[in-house]
């Protein structure tokens, strides 16, 4: 027993043991594909020929000169930023609600986590039906309540064409992203709220602090680091996501909902130009890296204070 327990008493060894699976995972499933994408971006590989002939920055210049790419880049940033605002607001509200005591709290939490737990492609097929250009149940309800149809309050048409008009298609995609990402951010914030020492909150109560004052001056500042982490997770996931628009709009109408991940796939895999597809996807990397460094520093500073 003594022989067995000895190596496990070595903190360094145990640390390596715990870290190894995560490091292997990151190296093999994240690091290697990432390095491969960089290599592809500086070559002229196609789907049929993966010989790495170095072409310098040619792909990056070509991508930057492409008008569609610039619009796609802007759309990706806009979708990410707008949805993060809503995710942050909703996640804070919901985290506060779910950390209170009320009847049915566990069931409410379970229902609420479902959008995150459901496989994204399956969930998007559901939304595709809900937002169908012709047979949307939402349109049906609006039609039945007089909002649509002849002399309708919103439109004389029987449909709003959720995924077919420039404005509504963008609103729909942002809405679905918020629906999908809010549960994760909420769970992270709930963990943060639960970790606030109760003696601090008790002290505040004794001192006569009311709900809003406790929230704004105690809870939110204390969970700021974890809020930044939640935001970072959500932003990076959304920035690289293509599933939502791939299923819902395939980037349409025109290019209004085309995002980097989707365009990279369309050019690289469907169009066969693997090198440019890789270059398109890598354009986001410096931005995401800068964002991650900034946010992690912010979180770190907030923690120190």
């Amino acid at each position: 027993m003594a022989r067995l327990s000895y190596p496990l008493d070595n903190r360094r060894l145990v640390g390596i043991m715990f870290l190894t699976p995560a490091l292997l995972y990151i190296l093999l499933l994240v690091g290697f594909p990432f390095l491969l994408a960089i290599a592809f971006g500086f070559s002229d590989v196609t789907v049929g020929n993966t010989d790495l002939n170095f072409v310098g920055l040619r792909n990056y210049f070509a991508v930057w000169e492409n008008d569609i790419f610039r619009q796609v880049f802007e759309t990706t940033i806009r979708f990410t930023l707008v949805s993060q605002i809503f995710i942050l607001i909703f996640a804070n509200i919901l985290a506060i609600i779910f950390t209170q005591d009320f009847t049915g709290k566990w069931f409410a939490r379970f229902i609420f986590i479902l959008p995150w737990a459901t496989p994204v492609s399956l969930a998007m097929i559901g939304w595709l039906w809900m937002l169908d250009t012709k047979y949307s149940p939402i349109d049906y309800l609006l039609l039945q309540t007089g909002f649509l149809g002849p002399n309708g309050i919103l439109s004389n048409s029987r449909n709003l064409f959720w995924l077919a008009t420039p404005d509504l298609s963008q609103i729909s995609v942002i809405f679905v992203q918020v629906w999908r990402m809010t549960p994760l951010a909420t769970v992270i914030l709930m963990a943060g709220l639960s970790s606030i020492p109760t003696d601090i909150l008790d002290q505040a109560e004794v001192d006569g602090s009311r709900f809003m004052r406790t929230l704004l001056q105690i809870k939110l500042p204390l969970i700021l680091p974890i809020m930044v982490i939640a935001l970072l997770f959500s932003m990076i996931t959304m920035f690289g996501d293509m599933t939502v628009v791939y299923v819902l709009t395939r980037g349409g109408p025109v290019d209004y909902t085309r995002v980097l991940g989707l365009y990279s796939f369309q050019v690289g895999i469907e169009g066969g130009n693997l090198a440019q597809g890789a270059a398109i996807s890598l354009f986001a990397f410096p931005l995401l890296l800068a964002m991650a460094i900034f946010m992690l520093r912010t979180a770190s500073r907030a923690e120190v204070q």
Binding site: L128, K134, A164
Partner: peptide
Amino acid sequence: MTDEVFGWTAASNNQGLIAGE
């Protein structure tokens, strides 16, 4: 036509014809 054609999937025209719409 209506604006629906800007947001179609590959199945949309099939569905519309089948529904008589």
